[in-house]
Design a binder for these strands. Structure first.
Lengths: 79, 79
DNA sequence: AGATATTATCTTGTTTAAGTGATAAAACGA
DNA sequence: TCGTTTTATCACTTAAACAAGATAATATCT
């Protein structure tokens, strides 16, 4: 399954989920991309006012990629 | 097909592609989400330093959604 | 080529995130 | 519970995005 996101907040939650799934701490992710721990915290909690640059750094650290596609009617969040 | 993105720049290009596909001008997209034309221009050209809030506004205007998923080895850009 | 429509670039002031460090709060394990 | 690890919050300075408007550059069409 995949997780269609329509808001920044949802993205933060997904990032957090993937990070925990990989058993990584915020500090570990930050170290991997050159960001302090509190930066990762902010991205997960309030991503709407984070830059794409920051977000993509975290995506890289978690070995994630992003797909943009037309909204598929009726297909809401998968959880 | 889908378009796995690994950098902010790729996202900008994809947004531009979808917009043109829908025959919308930057001004039209901007008007739909309360942003000036030049803001859309910046998001498409240099999205790395745009906030998620802005990007998701544009995604909404173009009726797009985002999927985050583990990177799939070997599967590069689809174009 | 000329006119129009679209997009990119520039300016200025205001607001806000980035960045770093420290600390408080919370979660977890022994 | 106590100690430890992890996460959230606070403070401060610097740098940059945001916003609005104007203008320049580019593309598009006849």
């Amino acid at each position: 399954m995949d997780y269609p996101l329509k808001t920044p907040g949802q993205l933060g939650a997904v990032l957090k989920g993937f990070r925990r799934e990989r058993k990584l701490t915020q500090a570990a992710v930050g170290a991997a991309v050159g960001l302090p721990q509190n930066a990762i915290s902010q991205i997960e909690a309030a991503p709407d006012h984070s830059s794409l640059a920051r977000v993509f750094k975290v995506l890289a650290a978690l070995e994630l990629e992003v797909v943009v596609r037309p909204r598929q009617p009726g297909k809401g969040a998968a959880w």
